[in-house]
Amino acid sequence: MRSADVQQPGMFSYVSVDARVPSDHPIRKLRELVDGVLREMDGLFAARYAKTGRSSIPPERLLRASLLQVVYSVRSGADKGYDTHAFVAALHDWGIQPHIARKTAGRRSAISDDIAATAGYAISQQIRKRIEQPFGWTKTFGGLRKLMRIGLSDVKAWALWVFATYNLIRIGGLEEWWEPAPT
């Protein structure tokens, strides 16, 4: 049985969430969007729960909690190691112009200055960032790097949820809710 989505702002704190979050904070606009989407899903939620039995946690509350986990996750870095002399040499042997990101912090990049100075390399790096950013974000913040889900349907559902969250945050960046934009 599905419980009602009743908010209890003072249950564990003497200060309400509304009092803690500044009125101009971007999370408020995100909350409005999410609440609107969850209201539209009310019929779907109602159809999936039994009419009798013990009440469960409302799915809206669970989805809001997982959204906050995704939005406020701890950052982590990753280095795939493509900027190595062996990998770049193999690309050259195959007749492929390497357009991989240069890693120059504390070492010399395997990508030559001549390649990095070309217009094609510059364009490639700009487009690459646009393509890789959502996937990196979903792995780092959305938990897709070490997903704790079993079964294709669970993985698909979580991936859909995380990419939807990314899109909401991206909309917030485009609409300039966030300063600076997180994406």
Rank of each mutant, 00 (worst) to 15 (best):
W137C: 04
A105Y: 14
F135K: 00
R28E: 04
K146P: 05
G120V: 03
V155A: 11
P58M: 02
V71K: 01
P26I: 01
R130G: 14
L68H: 09
R145C: 06
A117R: 05
K139A: 15
Y121M: 00
R48N: 12
D83F: 09
V71E: 03
E132H: 06
A90I: 02
L44Y: 11
S109T: 15
I150S: 07
A65K: 08
A78K: 00
T140F: 10
A119W: 11
P58I: 04
K139V: 09
H99T: 07
R54V: 15
G143M: 01
R149D: 13
G43E: 04
L30V: 11
Q133T: 13
S73A: 09
G106L: 06
W94D: 09
D154I: 01
S124F: 13
Q97S: 13
K51F: 08
G136I: 08
L67Y: 14
A101D: 07
E60V: 08
V71A: 06
D154G: 10
A110T: 02
R39T: 15
T104L: 07
D114F: 09
R108P: 12
I96E: 09
V34F: 12
M41G: 00
S73L: 04
A159K: 08
S73D: 10
D93Q: 12
R102T: 02
V37L: 05
Q126E: 13
A86Q: 10
R64Y: 14
D154Q: 14
G77I: 09
G143P: 01
A159E: 04
T84Y: 13
A116R: 00
T52V: 05
R145T: 04
Y121S: 00
G53D: 05
G95T: 00
A65Q: 13
